[in-house]
């Protein structure tokens, strides 16, 4: 597969295989993620797109029986190296999950959680981080008067933006989003999509989505996965208008499961 090697690539993946026990979930993935762009990963469920996303911040480490082969580099550093600090890596590559999962703590404590773990103790610094992050996630105006209330009292959409703010608090380079709007209503989905477009100015975003419309609306690059293989990737408009592979065409035109 010919990938245009871009000088601005922040993550590069070469020959990546991933197995759950004997089952091969990812086959020979080659791709690169470009800086300050929104990259969408699409494909039918079970195609490996979420699994692939989770290889980028090594969240697959948590599942027993997972083995990976191949190369994944972040800013030129191989992330599956023995002496790589996964904790430090995850501070650089944040993640937002499918279901909003704020901690059952206050809104403030949710955002301050990451910075606290990285040793920020000063109350003033924390206040500043919390405010900046919530502003960046377009949630500040809604919650500034109830920072000490439980995060579980927020609506689903607000909870998801809180999770984004929580990830942004660490000032990561990359933000991984695993179907972040699948549990939300259309209005809340819209707000998150707007937010993603704003965020790409400062962050590199990789988003897994089950909605082709969402991919078309918000992403610059799209990669199509099928049964563990990366079938086609490139500029989003090209993928959606003039796909090279028949299977991609079938999927984006809705002729596919």
């Amino acid at each position: 597969m010919s990938v245009v090697q871009n000088m601005e690539a922040i993550i590069e993946v070469k020959n990546l295989d991933l197995y759950y026990g004997d089952f091969q979930a990812l086959k020979k993935i080659d791709t690169s993620i470009e800086k300050n762009k929104v990259s969408a990963l699409i494909g039918p469920s079970g195609c490996g797109k979420s699994t692939f996303l989770r290889t980028l911040n090594r969240m697959n480490d948590l599942i027993s029986g997972v083995t990976t082969k191949g190369e994944v580099t972040f800013e030129g550093r191989e992330i599956y190296d023995q002496d790589l600090d996964v904790v430090a890596l995850r501070r650089k590559i944040g993640m937002v999950f499918q279901k909003p999962n704020p901690f059952p703590k206050s809104i403030y404590e949710n955002v301050a959680y990451g910075p606290r773990r990285s040793g920020v103790k000063n109350k003033k610094d924390l206040d500043q981080i919390v405010e900046e992050s919530l502003k960046e996630a377009a949630l500040w105006e809604e919650v500034k008067d109830r920072l000490n209330k439980s995060a579980l009292g927020l609506s689903g959409g607000q909870q998801q933006r809180l999770c984004i703010a929580r990830a942004l608090a660490m000032k990561p380079q990359v933000l991984l989003m695993d179907e972040p709007t699948s549990a939300l209503d259309p209005i809340a989905t819209n707000r998150i999509e707007d937010l993603i477009t704003q965020l790409k100015e400062h962050y590199t975003i990789v988003i897994v989505t089950h909605s082709m419309h969402q991919a078309a609306r918000i992403s610059d690059k799209t990669a199509f996965f099928l049964m563990g293989e990366l079938i086609e990737q490139g500029d989003t408009d090209k993928i959606f208008t003039t796909p090279r592979d028949q299977r991609t065409e079938d999927y984006v035109t809705g002729r596919f499961g």
């Binding site: 969240m59 999962n101 704020p102 959680y113 929580r166």
Partner: peptide, 17 residues
Amino acid sequence: PDSYREASLALGASKWE
């Protein structure tokens, strides 16, 4: 729930934290 563990780890907290 595991989702809390995932959230914490993804924020760069160590396993023990």
